[in-house]
């Protein structure tokens, strides 16, 4: 960043973000001029095929990776590394098995030096919010996949971040658990007013959760199209209007997947 970025009216603002990885077979352009923003309290879904750089984008916002070029602004200020104002929820819950459920939720608070009694009280309150109040003393391996993700959600919310970054958090769950978590997440979001960036490859999941759905193109990743979803909440994956919208986006996405496959074929033919 050589020049000061212009002021941004958005909670989260990405401008011209580029990221290239060096792989064994050469360079891989993960992101090319990625531009998008999220208003405070907005629920934005990043939708795209596997390998389109969604996770890279999220890692850059989180500060876990650095962009080669471009600006990532939070409230107009550039991101300088990981911080508790932006917490990531991963596809695997990434809970620590040596801690109880309560201590897992309290982990981030402990890292910021909160006294034990206070952080336990806060952790238990968060667990109540995700309906796991009875599991505070349980071990992580006693929980189901869906419960683990709810603990991960509680752990992130305990830090009271302004932005939640969610990286396909429900992709490994069965349909019923996922549906329950969709409802719970919508409720939590309305109650807390967090800004959420949610990465998924599932069109209907994106439409159930998001105010806006941004479709990413594959290699290099950039915003290809944008859909606004104003259906009343809480939404269900099965509602007709949602399924109709999903069809429209899917055909858009399909051309993208084809393009990506063409790319792969071309690479194979002319290495």
């Amino acid at each position: 960043m050589t020049t000061a970025p212009p002021a941004s009216p958005w909670k989260l603002d990405l401008r011209g973000v580029c990221k290239t990885f060096r792989a064994s077979h050469g360079e891989f352009r993960a992101l090319q001029d990625l531009d998008f923003h999220a208003a405070a309290g907005e629920f934005v879904c990043l939708l795209g095929p596997s390998g389109c750089g969604k996770t890279t984008a999220l890692n850059i916002i989180a500060g876990l990776e650095q962009a080669d070029r471009g600006d990532v602004l939070i409230d107009g200020r550039p991101v300088a590394g990981p911080g508790p104002d932006r917490v990531v929820i991963f596809q695997e819950a990434a809970l620590f098995p040596w801690l109880t459920v309560r201590d897992n939720v309290a982990f981030g608070l402990a890292a910021h030096g909160m006294p034990r009694a206070k952080r336990h009280r806060l952790a238990e309150a968060q667990l109540e919010m995700v309906n796991l109040g009875d599991f505070a003393a349980a071990s992580v391996h006693e929980l189901s996949g869906g419960m683990k993700q709810r603990v991960a959600l509680a752990r992130a919310l305990a830090l009271n971040p302004e932005i939640l970054l969610m990286d396909e958090p429900f992709a490994a769950l069965d349909a019923l658990a996922r549906e329950a978590l969709h409802l719970e997440l919508q409720t939590l979001w309305s109650a807390t007013g967090k800004t959420i960036v949610f990465v998924t490859h599932n069109v209907r999941e994106a439409l159930v959760l998001g105010d806006r759905v941004l479709v990413l193109s594959a290699s290099p990743g950039r915003i290809k199209s944008e859909f606004r979803c104003d259906l009343p909440r809480p939404r269900s994956m099965e509602s007709h209007s949602l399924v109709d919208m999903a069809q429209a986006i899917l055909s858009d996405l399909r051309s993208e997947v084809q393009a990506a496959q063409e790319d792969v074929r071309r690479d194979r033919l002319a290495p």
Binding site: A62, G63, L64, P82, G83, P84, R86, V87, V88, F90, E92, A94, F96, W98, L99, F107, G108, A110, A111, H112, R155, A156, L159, L165
Partner: peptide, 27 residues
Amino acid sequence: PLYLRAARTMGARGWRLYTGVILPSAL
């Protein structure tokens, strides 16, 4: 690496990361 990323995104670093995550994970 996932544990480290999760801990870092929650703001743990340095000594805290070492005693809170790396050491127990290696136990």
